[in-house]
Design a protein around this nucleic acid. Structure first.
Ligand SMILES: [Mn+2]
Ligand SMILES: [Mn+2]
Ligand SMILES: [Mn+2]
Ligand SMILES: [Mn+2]
Lengths: 225, 225
DNA sequence: TTCTTTTTTTAGACGCGACTAATCTTTATA
DNA sequence: TATAAAGATTAGTCGCGTCTAAAAAAAGAA
């Protein structure tokens, strides 16, 4: 396997994250990568030649087996790095993400193994995202958000969105991080605020915030594979 | 200050290391960078436009103040990383160097500060090379090698060459690392082997090896600024 | 000083990864 | 179903960082 560029790796990662069952649209890739659609088409042609994706003109794109493997490898780097930067080096949520976003492309397998070991082979990163194994296995994530939970129900935070680090700071302050037990006490109508209880203490949060908190009804870290 | 590419940073570092008093030759840069002379000329033109070097056609090149600052910043990253990788993460000599060579271009100032702090603000890397300070101060290195020391003299290893990691493994086994006290017992003529005593135990090493071990007559880490 | 060798630069090319503008294909709407 | 809008691709350009081959300049030898 020849050396892949940072750009190639980031495209594969983006496609992986956009790709559910079906195929991924050029425009969607352009949006998350913050480049023009023309740039995406150009890259897709090259990724196709490298047999990392399967692209049919005007019909979207899908990762091949090889492409998936690369994407998962980069995601593994990213999540191990995030965990290491936060747990061992004391980075904040926002610094941690930005740093991992760059370093994920530049660490060696040796480095990956060292931090994995130093962290005690973690299965999830600080957001609660599953860390792919070295051979490309990955647990699937909870899909229900706290905003969808009915009053009276008790859930456990599985993972949180990694999109907005200010939000993460807020969630940390509110105690809404992976593994927190949450009891939904009340929901105001018309997308109104939600009253939750954690460790007995009640707290009111907005519906918007709640929609970035993903929950499960059982203990989350036993749930996945 | 805009973002500089890895290539630009590595050129500046190479020029810094080649540059003594005078100017650096295109061919010498080409050799250490392992690229063609034409590539070097091309890069020198661009570095000149960026005001990082001062290049006169056919007359060699010198770093400007700004160029020196960048070079020292990268060298600081490199040496802090080497120290961190070896001391905290348990990398070997060869892995440590290769890893630092890449990561030096990709860590943030935040990362730099964290490892500096975690290491207790070291002044020298595992080779004994001085680590530039954040504001670009650097201690100068010893220039006498163990091969030049006369029998009967007692010296302290200041630093070792970082060129050959097999050699470093050997030096580590022999106990010839920075701060080791060495008593030169005997030197065979015609570039023959040198007998040294360390902690009482005698050992015979080749002249070639000895020429990669730089020594001082006083305690080295008190000597520099 | 003149010729030869070495060093450096120039000229022209290439792949990467981005861009804009124009065009083509597909999908939605009237 | 014809037309308009949205989505995707093509065409052409650019800077980066590399290359080889050829030309020019500097240094060394006769
Ligand atoms: Mn990235
Ligand atoms: Mn994450
Ligand atoms: Mn480097
Ligand atoms: Mn070093």
């Amino acid at each position: 396997m020849r050396m892949l560029s940072q750009a190639v790796e980031d495209y594969l990662k983006a496609i992986y994250k956009l790709q559910g069952d079906g195929r991924v649209a050029t425009n969607d890739i352009a949006q998350v990568m913050e480049v023009s659609s023309a740039s995406v088409t150009n890259m897709l042609k090259r990724l196709t030649k490298m047999e990392l994706v399967d692209h049919a003109s005007y019909k979207g794109v899908r990762l091949t087996g090889a492409g998936t493997k690369v994407a998962l490898e980069i995601i593994r780097h990213h999540r191990l790095l995030e965990t290491y930067l936060k747990e061992i080096m004391g980075f904040s949520w926002s610094e941690m993400h930005a740093e991992a976003e760059r370093l994920e492309h530049h660490i060696s397998e040796e480095f990956e193994e060292r931090i994995d070991e130093m962290l005690g082979f973690p299965t999830h990163d600080p957001h609660g995202h599953p860390i792919p194994t070295k051979d490309g296995q990955i647990a699937d994530s909870a899909t229900q958000t706290l905003a969808e939970v009915e009053p009276g129900e008790r859930v456990v935070v599985h993972h949180v969105s990694d999109a907005d680090s200010d939000l993460l700071e807020y969630l940390e302050g509110a105690g809404l991080l992976p593994n927190s037990r949450v009891h939904v006490v009340e929901k105001e109508p018309f997308n109104g605020p939600i009253t939750v209880a954690m460790d007995g203490a009640e707290r009111v949060i907005g519906r918007e915030v709640a929609s970035h908190v993903f929950v499960a009804h059982e203990r989350p870290f036993e749930a996945g594979a």
